[in-house]
């Protein structure tokens, strides 16, 4: 997955390399988040479909569904934090760093990594029950993840411009609350998915 992110960033770098000076901050920011979004969908789609049937039954006997969804969310959050962090460092390295306020940008990356991970984990669980899970994963997750993506891009833009933190309070609170809602819902709903 790391290779996926790095090569995507590199492809973007090469495609933009002729006109680097035309790369406005908005394009820079949006491009980064789109790369992260696709990396997240690809990374997390595997979290259920990759497990073999026997192992799922083993888990089923071993522990409660709540424990499984929470551990999957935590694991995926760490994967996403790692991917987004390394992705950002590499992206800033090749495309030039345009961020004004690194602290806020880091918070933004952390919040969105956790949010993406928790939304996509539940969707991956849903999609893995169907037959053509790869297509279904994309169709189900993109509209659901869009509000989060929009908030993230707005917050990241504030961080890039180096605006005062009080300006972005709204966005941080909204992102946090969406994260919380999504995690609670996954916790409550997953047992029903797990049974089938």
């Amino acid at each position: 997955m790391l290779l996926y992110v790095v090569s995507t960033v590199f492809v973007c770098y090469l495609s933009f390399s002729l006109r680097r000076n035309q790369l406005t901050p908005i394009v820079w920011n949006t491009l980064f988040w789109i790369i992260i979004l696709f990396a997240a969908v690809n990374a997390i789609a595997k979290s259920f479909s990759q497990e073999r049937h026997g192992r799922l039954i083993y888990y089923y006997n071993l522990c409660s569904p709540q424990a499984i969804i929470m551990s999957k969310i935590i694991y995926n959050s760490f994967v996403m934090l790692f991917l987004a962090g390394v992705g950002f460092v590499f992206y800033a390295f090749v495309m030039g760093n345009q961020v004004g306020d690194m602290g806020l940008y880091a918070i933004c990356i952390a919040l969105s990594a956790i949010g993406f991970a928790s939304v996509l984990t539940l969707i991956a669980g849903i999609a893995s029950k169907a037959d053509n899970s790869a297509t279904l994963m994309a169709v189900l997750s993109f509209p659901i993840i869009l509000p989060m993506l929009l908030m993230t891009i707005r917050l990241a833009k504030n961080a890039m411009d180096g605006l005062d933190w009080s300006v972005s309070n709204d966005e941080i609170i909204t992102l946090l609350s969406i994260d919380l809602i999504v995690i609670t819902l996954s916790y409550l709903l997953f047992p029903y998915l797990w049974r089938s």
């Binding site: 539940l122 849903i126 029950k129 659901i144 509000p147 969406i178 819902l185 709903l189 998915l193 089938s196």
Partner: peptide, 17 residues
């Protein structure tokens, strides 16, 4: 069962949207 899970999840995202 699976559609119900998605429906509840979808409404929770739909309202903030």
């Amino acid at each position: 069962r699976i559609a119900s899970v998605y429906n509840i999840f979808a409404f929770a995202v739909f309202v903030p949207l």
